[in-house]
Structure formats: structure tokens, C-alpha cells
Design a protein around this nucleic acid. Structure first.
Length: 419
RNA sequence: GCCGCCAUCGUCUAGUGGCCUAGGACAUCGGGCUUUCAUCCCGAAAAUCACGGGUUCGACUCCCGUUGGCGGUACCA
């Protein structure tokens, strides 16, 4: 039988990072088996629908490159199907109506048991604890339980991949499948991602929507790679791996059973790895877009090789490089006592033949430092502060090249004139 | 409370009875390179394998219990 997986979020909130991993694993499982991965929107709770969240889910998958197959399935458009199946159960005396809702009559004997694909572990429940439950609400919409069973059977989902918070509903689902005389699909319940305080990752942690990470300067590939590693180690032991490599190596049986803690620090490291691996031309486009195309592509192109090893997120470019397109603000105290030296530096600059050459530039100021009896490093640092107002910048000479000799001299003059 | 899932360095994890005096990655600390910061390279510290019982010639690995964490306990998903 072919493998069909699906990502089935409810449009009741922005897609969060946990959803990313669920979608990713479902995608990997499908692609590995050359099966299909689809998107189903579980919009059955009218009261909790939040406008725009469906689009957010779609945009997130698109950004991540987790392309789904076929059309999007909306449960709200399948009302007749759920109703028909609920009626069927009533006809078979396996369900009954009460207070305008339809309840499923649970059997109270025996055990419900499955072998979960995650870790291949057995999960067992005693049916005696299962109370009758609603399958069709009085507003005509199905509950998750009915919709899951009907849809995943009709759409031939296998395996069903979802969060571990569903484990306790398993007996309900198993009984429903049995009531319809349908084959029970294989299940994979993914451990829940925790925040640093070990509680379920949520808004409380300032947890963010997946797309907020794009806003923060993270790359889709890095997010995917990091999320894949939350609870899973590829057999090869490789940590940095592409989507294709993940498809190649992924197996639900290798997913760790314990709930992992989301660690932004490692995500940042991973993102830096991807930035460093990037082609300069691609990185240029990404930074350019990230900065909302406010600068010329030529400028960004010059910056890229300078910042590539120095940033972990696209957003890091701003504090590092904004002096290149904005007049710096000087903290006068830092260099006030160096006024005399700055004047000497300015004189040297004005005396240098243009265009300035790197080796001559360096030689000139090393000699000046010797002349003045100060350390080589100190004089370059002083120039750095003079042109940027910062103690940390991309390489000095390269920055000056971007700035231009005129602007560099101008900034020095202005600084000297400040006091 | 009840039901279920889980338990190896701060974090992500390797480990499926002897190869473990427990390995890797991130983070941390130290060093090298270096005109800043990074990158890169080298090194260190960091887990009595939650605890207590078994089983076994031998347990991180198997079983039981305890503790702890998480999840569920809705006409929400």
C-alpha cells in the first residue's frame, strides 16, 4: 500500500514551531516512500476559528519548502460525509442522539492497543475507562474524533502522524475504526516540544509563530534542519543535512521518545552554518530582501563576503553594517583623548595617493603607530571607531573601500570638529 | 485524583547485555590564528546513565517499584 501522510492543523492560531516539525516529519515519511503529503485544514470549531491563520499555515509551508500534493482539504466542506457516517453508526446502534448531539457508544470491555511507529513501542488502554463521547456536535460539525477517523480512512492516510497530545484519545479512535469495520491505520505520535522551563512550548515563552523566525533573520533550511534534529539523530550522525539527505535517512522508529527542549542557541548556530555554506549570490539576495531592498544590490554584494563569517542571522547585518549607509553616532568620550592622533591619521590619509591600496594603507598606519609609540592594533581600532562609531565592524580596509575615500576623510574631519 | 507517555552532560543526543574508566553536537571556559568581531584550528570542564530493588557470570541497556516531568481527563483541536 502506498504511503500517504498529511499535515492537519486547525486554523485557530498561527502556525508554531511544533507544527513545523510535525509537518516536516510527515513530509519526510511520505517522500522517503515516494508517497504523497497533503494538507488538511481542520476547521470544525467555528467558535475558535481565527481569520488569517489558514493563510499563515499555507505561507509557512511555502516558506519552508514543504510542498504538499493535491488540493487542500477543508473539513468544513465535508459536512455531509461526517453526518452520513454518524447516521450510519446510529443505524447500527453504535451511536445515539442526545441534546442535539450524536454520541458514540463506547464498549467498556477489553483493551485498546497499538504499536506506535515512534520507537515501535506498544501503547495500551483499558476500555473500561472510556465514556461515551460526542462525534457530531449540535451545530452539525464533527468533533476531531469523528473527523479524524472518517477522513484518514477515506483519504487512506497511513501512517497517521500527529502530536503526542493525541495519545490519550487513541481508544476513542480505535473504537470508531472498529465500529466502521475499517482497518486501523498505523500511528506515529511525536513527543511534545518543550520550552526552556520544560513546559509545553507556548505563548508563555514568548513562543512565536514560525514565520516570526523569518522576521528574525532565520533561514528556512536552518529551521527545518534544526527541527528535524529535535528528537531525531540520523543514522549517519551528520548534524547539518539537506532536506534530501533527511528524506534519505529519516525513520520514525529512530525518533526519540522523550520530550525535547527547544534551544534557540543551537538554532542560531545552525543558521550560521547555513549562512556560511550559502552561495554569495544567494546570500546577497536574501540579505537584500531582508533589508526590504532599501539599498542597492551592488552595495549588498560588496558586503556579503565581509559579513558571511560574522553573522548568525540575516538581521545581524544591521548592527554590524548600518554605519555604511548611515552617519554613525559617536560616543565622544571613547576617542576624545585621541584627538591629536586622529589629526595625524587624517593628515596621512589626505597625503595618500588615491585610490588607497590595502598594503600601503596598512604600512602607513603601522609606521604612524610606531612613530607615535602606540600599538598597531590601537591605531586601527581608532580608525575603525572614527569611521563607524563602533568597536566591532567588518574588516577595516574593506569597509573603507565601500565607504569611499571621500566619505572616510569626511567622517574623520567631522569627528575632530566635534570638540 | 484518575488514565497514558517519558527519564544519559546546562541543552539536543549516541548507546538495543560485555567494545562505556559513557561518545558526538550546541553552549561555557582556556589556547592558537588575527588591526576589531567573527570564521577556522587545538584543548578543558561538564552525566555517581533520576532513585531503589531484582534478573544475569556481567547492566546505561531487561523486569518491578518509587520519584519527577509532560500530556489527557470538553458539544477544543
Amino acid at each position: 500500500m502506498s504511503v500517504k501522510t498529511r499535515f492537519a492543523p486547525s486554523p485557530t492560531g498561527l502556525m508554531h514551531i511544533g507544527g513545523v516539525r510535525t509537518a516536516l516529519y510527515a513530509y519526510l515519511v511520505a517522500k522517503k516512500a515516494q508517497g504523497t503529503f497533503s494538507l488538511r485544514i481542520e476547521d470544525t470549531d467555528q467558535a475558535r476559528l481565527v481569520e488569517g491563520t489558514e493563510e499563515d499555515i499555507i505561507d509557512t509551508l511555502k516558506w519552508l519548502g514543504l510542498q504538499f500534493d493535491g488540493e487542500i482539504i477543508y473539513q468544513s466542506k465535508r459536512m455531509d460525509i461526517y453526518k452520513e457516517h454518524a447516521q450510519k453508526l446510529i443505524g447500527a446502534e453504535k451511536a445515539y442522539e442526545k441534546d442535539g448531539a450524536i454520541y458514540f457508544k463506547t464498549k467498556k470491555e477489553g483493551k485498546s492497543k497499538i504499536v506506535d511507529l515512534v520507537g515501535n513501542r506498544e501503547i495500551e488502554f483499558d476500555n473500561s475507562a472510556q465514556d461515551d463521547f460526542v462525534i457530531l456536535k449540535s451545530d452539525g460539525y464533527p468533533t476531531y474524533h469523528l473527523a479524524h477517523v472518517v477522513d484518514d480512512h477515506l483519504l487512506e492516510t497511513n501512517p497517521v502522524i500527529r502530536g503526542a497530545e493525541w495519545i490519550s484519545s487513541l481508544p476513542k479512535h480505535i473504537m470508531l475504526f472498529e465500529a466502521f469495520s475499517w482497518e486501523i491505520p498505523q500511528y506515529a505520535h511525536l513527543p511534545i516540544i518543550l520550552g526552556t522551563d520544560k513546559s509545553k512550548l507556548s505563548k508563555r515563552h514568548g513562543a512565536k509563530a514560525a514565520l516570526d523566525y523569518r522576521q528574525d533573520g532565520f533561514l528556512a533550511e536552518a529551521i527545518l534542519n534544526y527541527m528535524a534534529l529535535l528528537g531525531w539523530t540520523p543514522p549517519s550522525g551528520k548534524e547539518v543535512l539537506s532536506l534530501d539527505e533527511m528524506i534519505e535517512e529519516f525513520d520514525l522508529a529512530d525518533v526519540h521518545l522523550a520530550n525535547p527542549v527547544f534551544d534557540i542557541t543551537k538554532l542560531e548556530w545552525m543558521n550560521g552554518e547555513y549562512i556560511r555554506k550559502s552561495q554569495n549570490s544567494k546570500l546577497k539576495s536574501q540579505i537584500w530582501e531582508f533589508l526590504e531592498r532599501r539599498h542597492s544590490e551592488e552595495l549588498i554584494e560588496k558586503i556579503v563576503p565581509l559579513v558571511k563569517d560574522r553573522i548568525k542571522k540575516l538581521s545581524d547585518v544591521v548592527p554590524l553594517c548600518d554605519f555604511l549607509w548611515e552617519t554613525p553616532e559617536y560616543d565622544k568620550l571613547k576617542v576624545e583623548s585621541k584627538k591629536e592622533i586622529l589629526i595625524k591619521i587624517l593628515e596621512k590619509m589626505e597625503g595618500m595617493e588615491k585610490p588607497w591600496k590595502a598594503d600601503i594603507f596598512e604600512k602607513t598606519f603601522r609606521e604612524l603607530a610606531d612613530e607615535l609609540g602606540i600599538k598597531h592594533g590601537d591605531i586601527f581600532q581608532l580608525i575603525r571607531i572614527a569611521i563607524s562609531g563602533q568597536t566591532v565592524t567588518p574588516p577595516l580596509f574593506e569597509s573603507i573601500q565601500i565607504l569611499g575615500e571621500e566619505e572616510t576623510v569626511q567622517r574623520l574631519k567631522q569627528l575632530i570638529a566635534m570638540w
